[in-house]
């Protein structure tokens, strides 16, 4: 496994375990590398669109489907609470973890709460809908606003 893949796996597995992306120093300790080397790997993982970083280049804003900041999309899996970046990623968390979970969000117009159980085969039958304002070609122009 190459270094960047090692870092990616360490980031994602630490996030899966704790509920939020790890500090850079934690990743450095896990993989036995310097903080500078991890930061350089983060930059390459950003270029590969596997991480979205804050301006310091060291803090993970998104390790999709996981969010590094609170959002309106919350997911509980095996007792661990996660924030998802968006509605798509809310279903992405149980999909990534291969575990059943509960997605809690809301209708963005009526603010009606959504409590959606998800099992290994997907969400229970639901008439709720997903809507994305930004076309696919523009998603990574501003990933926070899609």
């Amino acid at each position: 496994m190459d270094f960047d893949t090692t870092v990616k796996v360490a980031v994602y597995r630490a996030t899966a375990e704790s509920g939020s992306p790890p500090l850079l120093e934690v990743v450095a300790e896990k993989v036995g590398a310097t903080a500078a080397a991890i930061k350089q790997a983060y930059g390459r993982l950003r270029a590969s669109r596997l991480l979205l970083l804050e301006g310091d280049g060291a803090t993970i804003r998104m390790a999709p489907p996981f969010s590094g900041v609170p959002t309106q999309h919350r997911v509980t899996v095996d007792g661990t609470e996660y924030y998802a970046n968006c509605a798509w990623d809310a279903l992405g968390i149980p999909a990534a973890l291969h575990r059943p979970g509960l997605v809690r969000s809301r209708c963005d117009q009526s603010l009606e709460p959504l409590d959606l159980p998800v099992d290994l085969n997907g969400p229970e039958p639901s008439a709720w809908l997903f809507h994305c304002l930004v076309p696919a070609a523009k998603w990574w122009d501003d990933l926070v606003f899609t």
Binding site: Y12, W88, D89, L91, P94, G122, P123
Partner: peptide, 15 residues
């Protein structure tokens, strides 16, 4: 949406 989630993220934690 579930199919998109599985396709995008089903192997995300793997090398």
């Amino acid at each position: 949406l579930w199919q998109l989630a599985v396709t995008w993220y089903g192997t995300r934690l793997e090398p």
